Simulated assay, not measured.
Amino acid sequence: MNILPVDRALSKYGTLADRSETKGAREGLSKHLMKMYAEGERDEHRLTVHGLSYLRKLDQEIDSRS
């Protein structure tokens, strides 16, 4: 898989949510998207959208712990 969807999702999410990258986000996102890629998803735009959803969920989990 091209790393581009990971970078795109992190960049777009950082801009939209006005948040900096959280510790471990890149690694977790990469694993999540690689799993999707291994399961057959090849569209980079869909992978980016799934990445954005993953990051939003991650931030919600972090916020709920605070």
Rank of each mutant, 00 (worst) to 15 (best):
S66N: 14
E39F: 03
L52T: 01
L16Y: 02
R19M: 01
T48P: 02
Y13G: 04
E39C: 05
E41H: 10
R65W: 13
L16E: 01
S66G: 11
E39Q: 12
M1S: 14
L52F: 07
K23N: 03
D7Q: 13
R19C: 03
R56E: 13
R42T: 02
G40P: 12
R42E: 13
Y37D: 13
T22R: 10
R56A: 14
D7L: 11
R56C: 05
A38F: 07
S66V: 09
L47S: 00
R56S: 06
D7I: 04
L16R: 01
K35C: 02
S11M: 06
N2G: 08
D7K: 14
L33E: 11
K31W: 06
M1K: 10
D59M: 11
A17M: 06
K12S: 07
L33Y: 09
S66T: 08
I3D: 14
Y13H: 15
E61N: 11
G51K: 09
L58W: 03
D18K: 05
S64Q: 12
I62Y: 09
M34N: 13
S11K: 05
D18I: 04
A25F: 00
G51C: 07
D63N: 13
G28C: 01
R56G: 02
T48Q: 10
S11E: 00
R65C: 02
R46C: 08
R46Y: 13
L4T: 14
